[in-house]
């Protein structure tokens, strides 16, 4: 069996490189691979393109990546939350680029990339600022715009359980973008809460099969406030 387990955080993120496009799971505080992100910050990478639902909140996670100058561009659906003050300041100073994508289109662009599709037609954003310049197709009398796949060089995923084959389960609404992102990157790295022996996971309940996982790291449960300052 291919060894997918990284014994250290450093090993888990060793392949990441400057300029990479990185898909990062999570919605709000649920399902964010906080430990992996901290590792990326510590590596001091530059010019990353981050794909996530938000532009980072408060001072940790993606917000810390931004604050430390690792990010050149963010592709997300919800950049202007009150808590995204780090992003706001950098954006206003012209230090980071932004692409706003409707949330369902963001998920489906990654699904398309993971599924080997060359794009898809969606009714979302027809006639809006976010649909401007995109090809419009009429099918059965309804308008759709053409959206392109969105592929990552890397995906950083948060899972609940993992086994040695990389099979994953998730917890509650912490599932969110994680399974679709796992399919959409050349190299998918998982931060899991616990590892279980192969065969222990009910095959009917595996959400992401290990074929979509390249590497996993057992981080244990994330404890807010463990290392520095207030988190949320």
């Amino acid at each position: 069996m291919k060894n997918k387990k990284a014994d250290t955080l450093e090993d888990a993120i060793a392949r990441l490189n400057d300029g990479a496009t990185m898909l990062i799971g999570g919605f709000g505080i649920a399902g964010v691979p906080e430990i992996l992100i901290e590792g990326v910050c510590d590596r001091g990478l530059r010019d990353l393109t981050i794909v996530a639902n938000n532009s980072g909140t408060h001072k940790t996670g993606i917000a810390r990546l931004l604050a430390e100058g690792c990010v050149g561009k963010i592709i997300c659906s919800f950049p202007w939350a009150v808590e995204s003050f780090v992003f706001k300041e950098l954006y206003e100073d012209g230090k980071v680029d932004l692409e706003v994508v409707p949330q369902g289109t963001l998920a489906e662009r990654m699904r398309a990339a993971g599924a080997g599709l060359g794009g898809f037609l969606t009714p979302t954003a027809v006639g809006t600022d976010l649909g401007a310049g995109k090809a419009v197709h009429e099918i059965d009398g309804k308008e759709y715009i053409l959206e392109m796949p969105l592929k990552g060089d890397f995906a950083l995923i948060k899972a609940r359980e993992v086994d040695a084959r990389g099979n994953l389960t998730f917890r509650m609404a912490a599932r969110n973008f994680n399974p679709v992102m796992a399919t959409a990157a050349d190299y998918t790295i998982v931060e899991a809460t616990t590892e279980v022996p192969v065969g222990d996971l009910d095959p009917e309940c595996i959400i992401t099969p290990g074929v979509f996982v390249d590497c996993y790291y057992i981080a244990g449960p994330y404890v807010p406030g463990k290392e520095e300052g207030p988190r949320s």
Binding site: F27, G28, I29, L106, A173, P179
Partner: peptide, 28 residues
């Protein structure tokens, strides 16, 4: 309150009996 069980507005919520969790592509 469970940090893994929040609404889209980031407020704490619950799941009713018979409720289900799905990933983002299915949700949309």
């Amino acid at each position: 309150i469970d940090p893994d069980l929040m609404s889209a507005g980031k407020g704490p919520v619950t799941l009713i009996p018979g409720g289900a969790f799905i990933h983002h592509a299915d949700s949309f």
